[in-house]
Design a protein around this nucleic acid. Structure first.
Lengths: 187, 187
DNA sequence: GAATATAAGGAGTTGCGACTCCGTTTACAA
DNA sequence: TTGTAAACGGAGTCGCAACTCCTTATATTC
């Protein structure tokens, strides 16, 4: 398959950006709205993404890959504790303003499309690596296993978004959470 | 306005039950599905709930009132700590199997209908009272304010549901959370 | 600067789901 | 029991949103 024509590549990009914006605001917006915002005909949207689900998955995949990349960058930092907590905070802070990230996070467990599934897997692995390193470094208690920590990440994102938490309340919420996650807190 | 005829009252009940079931499984199911499950004509559904939104709000209201009642019962118990944590655990455990409760919780902040709004308010107040008493009793740290604790309740519910947490992982997640909430944990 | 494959666009078409109309049935009262 | 207001049911209607067809425009290649 040959490379896309320049205008096509361009439009594809614009559509993805528009979709991220539109679906970020209201997850079941119509495809027309995306086309309008991207300043493109409806047919063009469907040529690039034959089905609405595929468009949604493309947006999702993009978000998940971005999160994974950030986690991978942080994994190189030499301070494992701050890397873990910093990533956690960043994810939660962003989902407060961008509804779609929270959706994406929770959808990452139960998604049909292969690409999106792989992206979710990659992101969870990168986050798992951050967790491991933080535990090795003694910053996070060892008895906190991945599933529950990941559930807390997803949950904190959704909870903050859903209740419309102000940023200072969000920080206090995270502080409570982190106290529970730190080594030596519990039994 | 006169009392409903016996069959009408009956059908109304059946419709609500069916709706709770159907929307609990998939929140954007069609009204037809509800009618089918309730073994009732579509017109009957719309006679009782003139609009789909009103039906959804009725389900929501019912759930919220049930939660409030449980919180009020527990508020009478003499042990404030277990009352608070017990309620918290119960809510999270139920949303794991009943998607709609989690939806209801997060929607309770941003709902149009007056009845549903009042139910949400009532439930939050009852939960707030549990929190207060637990703090008075020294079971929960005093610097945990209502907004962030409520966000954690909503978040834990959604996180557990969204990631499909097994019940033992769910308990471990809650244990982490509770360690953070307990008095003396942090600064 | 033509020729041509590739892409754009917007007016359809189709299907589904919310909601209505009206003839039939049924609870309740006298 | 019978009269009647109340309620039922399901075959419509209507609108919206996903997806297609086909004519027109434009990158790219020589």
């Amino acid at each position: 398959m040959r490379p896309l024509r320049a205008d096509a590549r361009d439009n594809r990009e614009r559509i993805l950006t528009a979709a991220e914006d539109v679906f970020g605001r209201s997850p079941n917006a119509s495809t027309d709205e995306v086309a309008k915002l991207a300043e493109v005909g409806i047919a063009t949207v469907f040529r690039h993404f034959p089905t609405k689900v595929e468009l949604l998955e493309a947006v999702l995949t993009q978000r998940l890959e971005r999160l994974r990349d950030r986690a991978l960058e942080l994994a190189d930092s030499d301070d494992a504790g701050p890397a873990f907590f910093g990533f956690f905070s960043q994810v939660v802070a962003e989902s407060a303003s961008k509804l779609a990230i929270a959706e994406a996070l929770s959808a990452s467990g139960t998604v049909a499309g292969d690409e999106a599934k792989a992206a979710g897997q990659g992101m969870r692995e990168a986050f798992g690596a951050l967790l491991d390193r933080a535990q090795q470094a003694g910053a996070v208690r060892r008895d906190a296993a991945f599933p529950e920590v990941y559930a807390l990440l997803v949950g904190a994102s959704r909870g903050a978004t859903a209740t419309g938490l102000e940023s200072d309340a969000r920080d206090r919420m995270l502080a409570l959470l982190y106290d529970g996650l730190r080594a030596g807190a519990g039994s």
